[in-house]
Design a binder for these strands. Structure first.
Lengths: 213, 213
DNA sequence: TAGATTGTTAATCGATTAACAATC
DNA sequence: TAGATTGTTAATCGATTAACAATC
């Protein structure tokens, strides 16, 4: 149950989505083979991944109990102190994240948003108010928020990161296309949508090249 | 210049962003050590990555020419046939992507969007019109579009994927939280924002756990 | 029982890092 | 020249896969 590899951690959320679909479809048990087929992984890999988080394990011939797996993965991924986040930059991308329904199913929540644009301040998005940036430090400290989401333009990103860190944020999800400079004890996860598409595009053209040989 | 590893491919876009910043700052040459420091990679890794795409290589004592690297990485990542995409699902997330400025710098463009909601059809987002879904097949075929972006609710995603594939799309960037079933020759890249945040949250709580030991 | 499926150990594979010679 | 920095080969590391015994 401990020492889960980085790669396993990345796959767990996908399993969770699939398992919930199975549950909705009334399926009560699932084999590693079936999961593997769906994701084009190997069954052994799936078993290793599941072994890392499953409390009961699976049963030969039956497979794994869907409900139990959902509980185990949710417990592993979802229930921890670090589940509340604040967001800075309530532009279109920021508001999209605030309205995004998918976080809840992982026990995650964006509890407040901040912006320095007076015309956005006090707006209410998805039931959450947008505050002036000057109120961030106080709120983060008071609520002991550990995760900050940055959706400001790139020139403002470093300043926002500094402010978040001084307020006590320990992990940053950065959507601005800059490499943030942060102390060693701060986690940063960069989300560069353009880069994601660029990689897909590249993989495709390599594939097409190889087909044309 | 060929056989670039997957991991290298993932790092190249970050290098590109940083190199452009350097160029803006008037820096003309950069050492692998400097790049490595910024990203907390090892200098050797950076050199290996750059060796894979750089036409000139670097010079001892000087390092790599910033302009030349930008050109090489851009050429490697950006210029290929697979640079136009269509998007289906012009809801908030879809419109955010349509308005997102970052794609252009990688030579990528969302050329048209589709939705089956009559109230969204004919809307113009970022200068691009939203068409009824019925017009997708024709446009994809005519323009030989190879990349499709799915930003519809999860229940509609598989149907949209099937439609895209039958029209000729070869790579799908999927924002719906489902595992799409596609033929072997179709590339799929899943973007699950909730999962990304969940992983960050998990890494943070593991870090905090280990600090408290 | 027979067969499907799990879980584990060992082998393989791919990527990173260490070591070091080449060179501007 | 001396020193910084590159590029490459070999060693290491981490993750995946193959093989197979255990078991429901």
């Amino acid at each position: 149950m401990e020492g889960i590899s980085k790669e396993t951690l990345k796959r767990l959320p996908s399993y969770l989505i699939f398992l919930k679909d199975l549950r909705n479809a009334g399926v009560s048990a699932v084999s590693s083979t079936l999961i593997a087929e769906r994701f084009k992984f190997s069954p052994v890999q799936v078993r290793k991944d599941l072994a890392a988080v499953s409390s009961d394990g699976g049963k030969p011939k039956t497979g794994f109990i869907v409900d139990a797996l959902i509980r185990d993965i949710t417990a592993y991924l979802g229930y921890n102190d670090a589940s509340d986040a604040i967001l800075v930059g309530a532009g279109q991308l920021g508001r999209t994240l605030m309205s995004y329904g998918g976080f809840k199913s992982y026990g995650l929540e964006i509890v407040a948003a901040f912006d320095n644009d007076y015309s956005i301040e006090n707006a209410v998005v998805n039931g959450k108010r947008v505050f002036g940036i000057s109120r961030m430090t106080d709120l983060v400290k008071r609520m002991k928020i550990l995760i900050g989401i940055i959706t400001v333009p790139k020139d403002a990103a470093q300043g926002v990161a500094d402010l978040m860190i001084s307020a006590g944020v320990r992990a940053i999800w950065n959507f601005a296309p800059v490499q943030l400079e942060v102390p060693d004890n701060i986690l940063v996860r960069n989300e560069n949508l353009a880069a994601s598409l660029a990689i897909l595009s590249k993989e495709l053209s390599e594939k097409i090249d190889s087909e044309n040989k």
